[in-house]
């Protein structure tokens, strides 16, 4: 489809209209930070957000999610729960978009995950081109996520008082036709777009001292690197880095029973490989007892293991794990240390 133009003043009416038929989730201010929240007032949407505390994965893989309900009466029965809601996920940066593409792969491959896929199928993604870096911690340029040519249904790029609208899927085109007031992009709009997109790249810095294509083989050779012990000494094993990571998807499964012991639910919640009990088996053996081994596992997953399984790196360069770490552990510094130590 040809590019369209959406005036900024047309966004509130568009979101209002969408809210009649969808849960609309988008970036909103929370104190001095931003979070993805369900929109109750379009005026609260902040397309100028830098980054969000939690990535938008929380819409598709909620922090807690029911998998099944069961009865504990004479005839025990179990019933699958698929809690889905037609959703428009609005204002997703391209790093997070890349992460969602990876999650799609993870939850479709081998054994399709009904809960994730049910919500994913009901979710329309509207992504947002980043024109300036969130802060000094993002390294999207290194990770190749500074822009995206696919993965969302509609892609927005800001030009002055309007957005260039690129509907890249049928669902995106239908949404535009039904809800949005847009006009065709003119030659002048296109010139503005080219100017914005051309001007953005120099504003972003490379943070890694090497090409990311080298990451898997570099980590392969770094299993015994002294860095892991250093990280292990500093890490508080709080699990914040994995919680805020847009590509971390590990989970725990647990049962809860009501007070009368008649029925219950089986749910999953986000888990973290940084927590002590993550790899402990019933017999007591813990296969990643040392924090050093757990930090190594996290970085290996990001730069090697996920790549080996899904052909994509497990890090999108959003920088959230760096911002959130109390111990100031930086994935960028860690990767650079490994690379530079090898010289």
């Amino acid at each position: 489809m040809n590019l369209k133009v959406l005036d900024k003043r047309a966004i509130a009416p568009l979101v209002e209209a969408l809210m009649d038929d969808y849960r609309v989730v988008g970036p909103q201010a929370k104190g001095s930070k931003f979070t993805f929240e369900a929109v109750t007032d379009p005026a609260n949407l902040r397309f100028d957000y830098d980054t969000t505390i939690l990535p938008p994965k929380k819409v598709l893989l909620p922090p807690q999610e029911r998998l099944a309900t069961f009865t504990l009466q004479e005839d025990l029965q179990v019933k699958t729960v698929l809690e889905t809601e037609p959703t428009v996920l609005l204002g997703v940066h391209t790093c997070d978009l890349k992460a969602i593409q990876l999650l799609d792969e993870v939850f479709s491959k081998d054994f399709p995950d009904a809960q994730y896929l049910a919500q994913r199928e009901q979710t329309i993604l509207i992504s947002l081109e980043c024109l300036s870096p969130c802060d000094e911690h993002s390294f999207c340029k290194d990770m190749g996520t500074l822009t995206a040519s696919e993965g969302s249904d509609i892609h927005l790029t800001e030009i002055d008082s309007a957005y260039i609208v690129d509907a890249t899927t049928e669902a995106g085109e239908e949404l535009l036709a039904r809800y949005a007031t847009v006009r065709d992009a003119t030659e002048a709009d296109m010139q503005k777009l080219n100017k914005e997109l051309g001007a953005k790249w120099p504003k972003f810095n490379y943070q890694l001292d090497f090409e990311t294509a080298k990451l898997p083989s570099m980590l392969e050779a770094a299993f015994e690197h002294p860095l892991w012990n250093d990280l292990g000494d500093r890490c508080l094993a709080c699990g914040s880095c994995t919680n805020v990571c847009p590509t971390c998807y590990c989970f725990n499964v647990y049962d809860e029973v009501d007070m009368l012991l008649t029925k219950g639910t089986r749910s999953r919640n986000w888990d973290s490989c940084q927590l002590d009990e993550f790899a402990r088996v019933a017999g007591g053996e813990n296969f990643r007892e040392a924090r050093a081994a757990r930090q190594r596992h996290r970085l290996m997953r990001k730069g090697k293991y996920i790549y080996e399984k899904f052909d994509e790196l497990g890090c999108v360069g959003c920088g959230r794990c760096i911002r959130t770490c109390t111990a100031k552990i930086s994935i960028v510094e860690s990767f650079n240390t490994i690379h530079n130590g090898k010289k």
Partner: peptide, 9 residues
């Protein structure tokens, strides 16, 4: 999926 049983890759 859940990640608990991972032995490296």
């Amino acid at each position: 999926k859940c990640g608990h049983c991972q032995i490296e890759s």
